[in-house]
Amino acid sequence: METRTRDVAAPARAPVMRRMWVWAAAHAVDDLYQGLVPASVPYFVLERHYSYVAASGLTLAATLGSSLPQPLIGAAVDRMRLPRLPAAGVLLAGAGFGLAGPAGPYAVVWVSLLLSGLGAAVFHPAAGRAARQAAGDSVTGMSVFAAGGSVGFFLAPVLATPVLVAWGVGATVLFLPPAVLAAFVLVRMARQDEARAPATAGGRDRWGPFAVLTMISVVRSAVFAAVATFIGLYWVRHLGGSQVMAGTALACFLGGGVAGTIAGGRLADRIGLVRTVRVGAVLVVPMLAGLRLAPGVFSALPFAVLAGLALNVPFAVIVRLGQDYLPGRPGTAAGVTLGLSVSVGGLLAPAFGLAADARGTQTVFTLVCFLPVAAWALGLFLRSPGIGQGQGKNA
């Protein structure tokens, strides 16, 4: 009887997993625009002569738009059926970034990127909730969805470098079509889903551990935002590399992040969620130190990959663990761990910009070597959500 049940369940899971891959692809498109912001910052600096503080202000605009509304949007997703919300979010994210380059005044560029960030805020809670329903108890499955976002970040410099080198920042409008296509696919899928009522898992919400987890996510995202924003300028201004090498360095960092997201899900299925969060905080320190101490444009590239890998090991795990701490509010949990805390970390970008203006971009990479220690210390206070919520190996 048990064998027959498994045989029936496997085909039944296949359509669900296919839907999760659709969500992962949509996540890649949405986060492409978040990745295009730091990828385009060096070109705004070099073409329009922005200061480091002004450059980090562009990252601040995108993170403000994507951070502040997310708890409210997550709560709305948990209470109401909003199947078209992800489509609207990805379309707004693409339109905001697409209009930033042709805009002339700095204030208009800033507002455009703010709207692009708002699009990400609209997308993440509903998409994170849907992905959790598709993934079930598999952390590896959830990591596939999270990796979609990492793929978007990875593709950003790969696509931005040749386009912006050839045509300048005014060419950002060329990145609008993927948002239109993704929105079209999501709207069609939403029409198919309107007759389905979303299920909400039972269990007691544990806000204390969730708050600790959120602080860990903020630390992780602060390091990520600092490296992603300044790694290109670090390659040009400190290591003496070309703009193409700067884009390559960012692509290596984000490509390592894709691998780290998948590896983190597989590791969590073996050793548990909490342990994986702690391991990621420990692993990233020597990788960042190697990136800072490497003497040349080529010798530093392997450390860019390894730093991105180690930094993203806890990413999908944090999203899944947050939903386990708040089983009755998966949209809210996704909005905070996948969106709010990630974006709040980016709010520290202007502080890193001040350090770069005062002492050079190398100072930024010295500072980020110490921040993961705080994430590891906070990780010591995490506890398993409990076997009763589907977590037998979390401690």
Rank of each mutant, 00 (worst) to 15 (best):
M1K: 11
D7L: 15
P11N: 08
V16H: 13
R18M: 02
R18T: 00
M20Q: 09
D31V: 12
Q34W: 10
P38L: 07
S40T: 06
F44K: 05
Y50Q: 05
S51H: 06
G57L: 07
G65N: 03
L68I: 13
L68R: 07
P69I: 09
L72Q: 12
D78N: 11
L82D: 05
L85D: 01
A88Y: 01
L99V: 06
A103P: 01
A103S: 12
V108S: 09
F123T: 04
S138N: 08
T140K: 14
M142Y: 13
L159Y: 05
V169G: 04
T172P: 02
A182K: 07
F184I: 11
M189G: 07
R191F: 14
E194A: 15
A195M: 14
P198M: 09
T200S: 14
T214M: 00
M215Y: 00
A222I: 05
V227F: 05
Y234I: 04
G240D: 14
G247V: 00
A259F: 11
T261N: 09
R266E: 12
V274S: 06
A281G: 15
A281C: 10
V284L: 04
P286S: 03
L293S: 12
L293C: 05
A294V: 07
G296I: 13
F315A: 10
I318N: 12
A334P: 12
G345V: 10
G346N: 09
G353K: 07
V364F: 13
V364I: 12
P372Q: 07
L380P: 09
L382F: 03
A395R: 10
A395G: 13
